[in-house]
Amino acid sequence: MDAVFKALADPTRRKLLDQLYLHNGQTLGELCKHLDMTRQAVTKHLTVLEAANLVVTVWQGREKLHYLNPIPIQEIYDRWLNKYERRQLNALGELKRTLEDNTKETEHG
């Protein structure tokens, strides 16, 4: 679980996860288009995300595709969220999203 929090504690890595959330299954080249960084730097960040099991890869022919793997996040959710309060928390989350009109990660830092 330390690896998950360490991996999430970096804005570039969160941005990579955001990109995969929008379009799952991207190649390294496709991911690099959204970031002002060298291929090597992006590869390093992806390695950290893979070590935390937040990103998983599959080969499709000669393409290596990256997928957002939400299982570790689900485990965090399961650990601290009581199952009886999930509906209320979902309602509050929905309320916040509606009022803030999908505030972007960049505005929150």
């Binding site: 799952n24 299954g25 099991n53 599959v58 499709q60 595709l65 997928y67 793997n69 299982i71």
Partner: peptide
């Protein structure tokens, strides 16, 4: 074949 829609990995 299309790209997979999603891929999940868990260790049990």
């Amino acid at each position: 074949m299309d790209r997979p829609t999603f891929v999940y990995v868990t260790y049990i």
